[in-house]
Design a protein around this nucleic acid. Structure first.
Length: 230
DNA sequence: TTCGCAATAT
DNA sequence: GATATTGCGA
């Protein structure tokens, strides 16, 4: 059958033209911001763990209407998940079992800095941890904080419902690169799914204070990976 | 007061 | 089944 042949050829060609995994842009590239890095002191795992309490997370997420109880609930579920992971596998990097796609893809899609992949040759690094991805920022700087806060403290499960509020990454109205911390426009008010009246307004001062405290404008490079120590 | 957990509700 | 809320002891 000629038609079948044609269509199969077409399909094969279509498949060939797909971008390779290396060419795909990881969307989570800019999720962790300098401020969050500073806030949680990601370079120090002990501090990170210490700060991963509902109240701190809630403050950093700065979501209108988000309560400490909300965060605590997600935190609880995620800890249970971690416990399952550790308990079931025994050994091995992935515990042999229980691999949660929701969390796995989060970290899997994070860019790996060259110094992490090739510790021997550092210097020239095309890796730009906190810029790029045109249009990723636009209006929702604060949601960026949410995502980053949750991932920063190592609790990606906190992304669940709040992640749904930002289903439209990638379309920038002007295609302009905006730094989420240089542009300090107040974000559109975001309501919880239940429409609970906001009684928990958290001022954004927290982040700004961190910036001034940092001294160099908060432009500290940060990734999910340990910094090069040279 | 806040946290973490279990039970319960949606 | 997943997620959110509530209650309670530490």
């Amino acid at each position: 059958m000629r038609e079948i042949e044609d269509s199969s050829n077409l399909f094969g060609k279509w498949e060939e033209e797909l971008p390779s995994p290396e060419e795909l842009m990881p969307l989570s590239q800019t999720l962790i911001t300098p401020h969050l890095a500073l806030a949680f002191d990601i370079s120090n795992p002990n501090h990170r763990i210490k700060n991963a309490v509902p109240k701190t997370i809630m403050q950093l997420m700065s979501v209108d209407g988000l309560t400490r109880e909300n965060v605590a609930s997600h935190l609880q579920k995620y800890r249970l998940y971690l416990k399952r992971m550790q308990g079931s596998g025994g050994g091995g990097a992935n515990g042999g079992a229980a691999s949660d796609p929701a969390t796995d893809h989060l970290f899997a899609s994070s860019p790996v800095p060259p110094h992490f992949l090739h510790p021997s040759k550092g210097s020239s690094e095309p890796f730009a941890p906190f810029v790029s991805v045109p249009g990723l920022q636009h209006h929702y700087q604060q949601q960026q904080h949410q995502l980053a806060a949750a991932t920063a403290v190592g609790h990606p499960h906190l992304l669940t419902q709040y992640q749904k509020q930002i289903g439209h990454f990638g379309s920038s109205p002007n295609g302009q690169l905006e730094h989420p911390f240089l542009a300090k426009q107040p974000p559109p008010s975001i309501r919880r799914m239940g429409g609970t009246p906001s009684h928990n307004q958290v001022p954004n001062n927290y982040v700004e204070d961190l910036e001034s405290a940092n001294g160099n404008g908060g432009m500290k490079v940060l990734t999910l990976f340990p910094p090069r120590d040279d």
